[in-house]
Simulated assay, not measured.
Amino acid sequence: MVGLKQYKQDPFWFLKTSVVRTVLFLPILAACIYYFEPSLKTLALYSLPILLLTLAGSWQMFSGLALGSAIVFYDKGFAGTDILWVLAGLLVTFPVSSIMHSAAHGSFRPRFLNRFLGELMGFWHNLSIDIWAVVHYYHHKHTDIPNLDPHPALGQTYMGFLDDSGRSFGAAFTHHFFECHGKGDRAIRAFHLSVLNFKVRSPIVSMIWFLLLGPKAFVLFYGTNIVFKRYHYAWFNWATHRKTGDEVQVLNLNHGLYKFVNLISWNLYYHGNHHAYPFLINPKNLPAQVKAKENNSAA
C-alpha cells in the first residue's frame, strides 16, 4: 500500500504529505488567478457551490452541485450540448476510481507510477492518496467487521449505507490512527493538524479546477464527477459486499450496466477476485497458475 510503512512509523505522515501538496498547490492557484483574472463578481457568485463541493457529506455535495447548476444556467445559459459535460463527468468516475485503487495497492510497474498516478487521481478527486491507501488497507484487513472496516456491510438499504458511510469511515479511521500511534499529545496533535490542513487544502484544489475549467465545465463536468464519485463509492461497496444472515459475500458483478462499467474501468466490479488477489490491476484476468489451482480444486 502506498505510504503505509511511513504512516505506521510517523503519526505526522499524513500532515507532512498534505502540507507538501498545499505548498505545491498555492503557486498553481496564484498562477491561475494571474492568468485567468477572474472577476470578483464571478468568485462571489460561485463561492458557495465551490465550498459545498469540498465538504465530505453526500447531501452537502449534492446541494453544491444543484446550486452551482442553477447559477451556471442563470449566468451562462443552457445549451443542448451541456448534457455532454454531465455525461463525461459520470463516465470518468469509473476509470479514475480504478486507477486510484490500483495505485493505492502498489500494483503498477515501475513502482514510481503508483505514487505518480495516485497523486494525479487524488488531485482530480480532491483526495489524499496516502489517507485513501491506509483506509483501504484497513478495509482489506478487517473486511466487513463493524467498527473496524471503514465501510462494513450491515445489511442496510443503499440509502442507509450511504448515510452511515461518513460516520463509519470517520470512526474507523480515528480508531485505527490512535491504535497505531497511541493517544499521547503528539499523536492527538498530529491527528487534528492533519484534519485541519485537509480542510484548508481542499478548497484550494477546487478553486484551481474552477479557474482551469471555467464555471460551466467546473460545475457540470467536475462537480458531477465529484458528487457522483461519492455516491458511486457507496454503491460500489454496498453492491459488492452482500450480507445474508450472519455471512457476508464479496461479489464479482458483470451483468447489465456492470458489463459496461467493467469495460471502461479494468473490471473494477470483479471485487470478489480483487479481495482474493488484491494486487491485480485487472481482477478479471487471474494469473494462469491461479486458474489452474482453482480448476484442480473444483475437480
Rank of each mutant, 00 (worst) to 15 (best):
S202D: 11
L193P: 03
G256E: 11
H241L: 09
G160H: 05
D164M: 12
D163N: 15
T174G: 13
F178A: 05
V227C: 03
F218E: 02
L220G: 00
F191H: 04
V135A: 07
P215W: 01
T143D: 06
G182A: 11
H176E: 02
S194R: 00
Y158G: 09
L251D: 08
S206G: 15
A187F: 06
E179D: 15
L154N: 09
R230Y: 07
G223D: 00
G182M: 10
Q156R: 14
N262D: 08
A190M: 06
A187M: 07
G170E: 13
I208P: 01
Y231Q: 04
Y233D: 12
F221R: 04
M159R: 08
V205D: 06
Q249M: 14
A190N: 02
A217Y: 00
R201M: 15
N147Y: 15
A172Q: 02
S206D: 11
V227E: 00
V135Q: 07
T244H: 15
S265V: 01
H175R: 12
L213T: 06
S194V: 01
G184P: 05
R167P: 06
A187I: 04
L211Y: 01
F169P: 03
G256H: 10
R242H: 15
H241Q: 10
L213M: 09
F161D: 05
T143R: 02
L213P: 01
F236Y: 11
E179H: 14
G155V: 10
V219Q: 00
H139E: 13
A190S: 08
Y137T: 06
N147L: 15
A133Y: 04
S168R: 15
E247D: 13
K229N: 12
K216T: 07
S165F: 10
V195M: 12
L196C: 15
Y137W: 14
G160I: 04
F228I: 07
G166R: 06
F221H: 08
Y231A: 04
H181T: 01
F177M: 01
F228K: 03
S265D: 04
N254S: 13
F161S: 04
H241I: 08
L251R: 12
A133L: 09
N237V: 04
S194Q: 03
S168F: 13
G160Q: 04
R167H: 14
V248E: 02
G166S: 12
F260D: 08
L193W: 08
K141C: 05
H142T: 12
D149Y: 01
V134Q: 00
A171S: 15
D164F: 10
V261C: 01
S206L: 13
L154M: 15
H151W: 05
H136V: 00
D164W: 09
T157V: 08
K141Y: 05
P146N: 13
T240W: 01
H140K: 07
K259G: 02
H192A: 12
V227F: 02
F218Q: 02
C180G: 05
L251Q: 11
T174V: 12
G170Q: 14
H136T: 02
F173W: 14
